[in-house]
Simulated scan of single mutants.
Amino acid sequence: MSDVVASHRAALVVAAAGFFLLAPSHAQAQWWKRAPVDFEACADAAEKATTKSEKTAALADCNAKFAGRRKAGGGYSYYDFLQDRSFDIAGPNPTPEEQKKIDESYTAYLANQRRSNEAAQATARQQREQQEQQVQQLQRVALRTEVERVPVPVERPKVQQAAIGDARPRPKGTPCTKGSFSCEWPRLSDGLNDIKKLFSPTPSKPAKKG
Rank of each mutant, 00 (worst) to 15 (best):
A35E: 15
T123Q: 11
A72K: 07
Q113H: 05
K101N: 09
R125N: 08
Y109W: 14
P206N: 02
P169G: 00
R114W: 01
A49G: 15
P36G: 03
Q99I: 01
G73Y: 05
Y78T: 03
I164M: 07
R140Y: 03
R140F: 02
T95H: 04
R85A: 13
D61L: 07
V147K: 13
T51M: 09
A72Q: 06
R149W: 03
Q126C: 00
S105M: 05
E98P: 01
Y78D: 01
L59W: 08
R115A: 14
A163D: 08
V154F: 06
P169E: 04
H26P: 02
E97M: 08
S25H: 03
L22F: 01
V4F: 13
A163C: 04
G73C: 10
L188V: 09
T51I: 07
L59R: 15
A35D: 13
S25W: 06
K33Y: 00
A43Q: 12
Q134S: 12
L22E: 07
K55R: 15
L21T: 05
A60K: 07
A90M: 02
V159G: 01
V5S: 06
L12E: 12
A111G: 05
A11N: 08
Q161S: 09
G191M: 12
R70W: 00
A207S: 11
A15D: 08
Q113V: 13
V13W: 00
R168T: 02
K196R: 14
F66D: 02
R125K: 11
Q133E: 06
Q99K: 05
L110T: 07
K172G: 03
N112G: 11
A167T: 06
K158E: 15
N112Q: 13
V159P: 01
Q133F: 01
K208I: 12
Q136F: 01
V14F: 00
G179Y: 05
Q134G: 09
A27S: 15
Q28L: 10
G179T: 08
T56C: 08
K55A: 11
S189Q: 13
Y109H: 15
E148Q: 15
Q136M: 09
D3K: 07
R128W: 03
D103E: 15
A90E: 11
D166I: 00
E104M: 10
G73K: 14
D190T: 06
P171H: 04
D88F: 03
G73V: 11
S25L: 08
E129Y: 07
Q139W: 01
G68K: 00
D80K: 05
E104L: 13
E129T: 13
A108M: 12
D88Y: 03
V152C: 10
D166R: 12
E146Q: 15
Q137V: 03
T174R: 07
K100N: 09
T95L: 05
P201L: 05
R125M: 05
L198M: 14
K33W: 00
S204W: 00
Q113I: 11
P169I: 02
K55F: 00
A111V: 07
V37P: 01
